[in-house]
Amino acid sequence: MRKRGHRSRGVLAVAAAAVLGVAGCDAVGGDSAAPSRAPGPSPKPTPLWDRSPGSVAAVGDSITRAFDACDVLSDCPEASWATGTSPGVDSLAVRLLGRAKAAERSWNHAVSGARMADLPGQIAQAVRRKPQLVTVLIGANDACRATPSAMTPVADFRADFEDSLRTLRKALPKTQVFVASVPDLKRLWSQGRTNSLSKQVWKLGICPSMLGDADALDTEANQRRNTVQQRVEDYNEVLEEVCSEDERCRYDGGAVHDYRFGTAQLSRWDYFHPSVDGQARLAEIAYRTVTAEKPLT
């Protein structure tokens, strides 16, 4: 009996030791290894798109130069949607940087009358400033030719745009690009054709491929306008496709082209270029695109 009791106490001791040993595996101490700590949260990756760039350079044509926005037959860069300082516009640069910094940290390299073939040269000028954001609005002059047959071929339009982005990327790999769609020229015709003054001004040679013979509604005239409209849509498709291949490029999703502008947004001198109000609408679209969490579609 004693031996059996002694043996029982020994078994209990071993069992107790085993229980304590198991408990020791769950706690820090003894010979057991300390449990590994859960990893902390990974640092957030730097986003490819900065919604508050610190400087802006604009390239493009007379729209970005605010031609005929303030005075007849003259540029008015202070009213530019991209870089102007006019309170009546609140340009993209002003909205991003504030009025004081916009005057120091934004540059307008657009040229009235420019076509896509001129963009590589403008980009080459812009990169010297090392801007954090470049705005592009160009293409209307490629469609506004003497005749539809004189419009810039789509393949050439694409090649020059691709060349422009390559030039930018080679010099400034991290600079962002905002690309505006080409405006709806046919809507411009439909808005202005009821105004006798606008039709007189258009006869001076403003966008003849679309605005020439504004009252003509015959088959030939309609076909001419439809051909120009299709070319504008083709240009916008190129802008979207090429921009989408660059991770630091944002297209406006067709917002400028689709904007339902009226005569209040057109210059009272030529009924073609944006008025100060029209420039403000362009600035709104650009700011919305640049500051959006995700690209517009």
Rank of each mutant, 00 (worst) to 15 (best):
P53I: 03
L137V: 04
W189T: 01
E162F: 06
V111R: 13
K130L: 00
Y259S: 03
P295N: 01
P77M: 08
C76K: 00
A58M: 06
A103D: 14
L188P: 00
S80H: 11
L296I: 14
L165D: 03
R231P: 01
S209Q: 04
V28C: 08
L282N: 01
R224T: 12
A16V: 11
R105Q: 12
L119D: 03
A146N: 12
A264E: 15
G60I: 07
V28G: 09
F261I: 11
G54M: 06
R260N: 15
D184Q: 05
T219L: 11
R225L: 14
D142L: 07
P295T: 02
K199D: 01
S267N: 06
F161M: 08
G88V: 10
R231C: 03
G278R: 01
A57G: 05
R128I: 08
Q200F: 07
G60M: 06
A117C: 01
R129A: 13
P274T: 08
T297Y: 11
R224Q: 14
L296K: 07
K174S: 07
K203R: 15
E220M: 05
S164H: 02
V134A: 10
A171N: 10
V56I: 05
S244P: 00
A283Y: 14
T64A: 14
L172Y: 12
F178A: 02
P274L: 11
Y259A: 05
V72C: 02
N236D: 10
S42V: 12
E245A: 13
A34G: 04
Q223S: 14
V127W: 09
D258W: 03
A79Q: 13
C25F: 15
K101S: 14
D26T: 14
V136D: 03
D277H: 03
G30M: 09
A159M: 04
R166K: 15
I63M: 06
R158H: 12
L282T: 03
S209N: 07
T263E: 12
G29V: 03
T152H: 01
S106E: 03
V228F: 13
L296S: 10
V238F: 05
L172V: 09
G30S: 11
D277L: 15
R224L: 09
D252V: 10
S55L: 04
I206R: 09
N108E: 07
G205C: 05
K3E: 12
G40E: 15
A34M: 12
E241D: 08
A93K: 04
L137D: 05
L197G: 01
V154D: 13
V19E: 05
R145Y: 01
P45Q: 01
C249S: 03
E78M: 06
R105M: 04
A27W: 15
L73G: 02
V94M: 07
S86M: 13
N226K: 09
Q125G: 04
S62P: 10
A16P: 11
A23D: 14
P53T: 04
M210T: 13
T83S: 08
V59L: 12
E78C: 01
D252N: 04
Q279R: 00
L20D: 11
F272G: 04
G205E: 08
L168S: 06
E284K: 02
A216R: 15
D218L: 05
T297V: 08
V242N: 03
R129M: 10
P148I: 09
V238N: 00
D252P: 00
K174E: 12
Q279D: 15
T135W: 12
C76V: 07
E247A: 05
D50G: 02
Y235F: 15
G54P: 03
R281L: 06
L188K: 15
A18E: 09
R7F: 15
R248M: 06
